[in-house]
Design a binder for these strands. Structure first.
Lengths: 136, 136
DNA sequence: GCGATTCTACGACATACGTCGTAAATTGCA
DNA sequence: TGCAATTTACGACGTATGTCGTAGAATCGC
């Protein structure tokens, strides 16, 4: 259970901040400013972070130099994006999406071996367990 | 070659419109309004579509009932999203992402067969061709 | 204890966006 | 041709967002 439902999709600006928080972890304003790829004013990051706090997407600690922490997990957001991608690219099936991935990225022999293992596991799964698992 | 680079990432609102256009193809305002899942006023969709035209994300034909067409392809946008997902979930490798896909979605035996084929092809590719291919 | 440095709270602005209402321009008929 | 339905052009409004500047509160180092 758990995992709050994301109501509205996140905007590019919100993603920019959240990705930074996921990457560098809980941070103070100055660390946050430094963590952002782009340069923005100190109070800019302050305002944006506080607005995310208002939206409950980020938490702010009460310690003295306050620390900001993402309240949404990257997995949670990624799952939603993946869902959309599967529908858009694949029309519901994961195959076309995987096809894109293996065609557009170069894979090392190790990765190929891992992928084979993954598929094999999935196959075993689908045979034994009669219990499906999937979103949407 | 080709494929225009998307400067700023698309907002949820822009995605909503573009996804509709990708789904139903070139449309007039009334079709566009009908095509949207949500109900919004006729002039609302008009304004939003025209703003997308200003941004060169959508084209408007000059015929009488004007037709609006997406100027960005779903593949183009999806590729960008996939890129981000790979970095976020997988830290650069496609394997964790594929792992998510095969674990969270139920696969039919046919799909499993297709995936195996895909991997096999990728393997052959990597062996023969010394010419890698990949974004980023 | 006190000046310098760091944090914070706010408020201000411009631009972006979502939503429409009005009203004029076109078009499709009867 | 004349009227009704359809399309368009605009402009208006409220909220959201990105960017800061100021100034006061806290904290630190001496």
């Amino acid at each position: 259970m758990s995992k709050r439902r994301l109501g509205p999709r996140l905007s590019p600006g919100e993603m920019e901040i959240l990705e930074m928080l996921w990457r560098v972890g809980p941070v103070t304003l100055s660390k946050a400013q430094a963590g952002l790829a782009r340069k923005v004013g100190y109070t800019t990051i302050q305002t944006r972070l506080n607005r995310l706090v208002d939206k409950k997407l980020v938490a702010r600690s009460s310690e003295r130099p306050a620390h900001y922490t993402a309240l949404v997990e990257p997995e949670e957001v990624s799952a939603g994006h993946l869902q959309m991608l599967v529908e858009r690219i694949s029309g519901g099936s994961v195959v076309p999406l995987v096809a894109h991935l293996v065609r557009d990225w170069k894979l090392s022999p190790e990765e190929i071996a891992e992928l084979k293992q993954l598929i094999a596991d999935a196959e075993r799964q689908s045979k034994s367990s009669s219990n499906p698992r999937r979103p949407s």
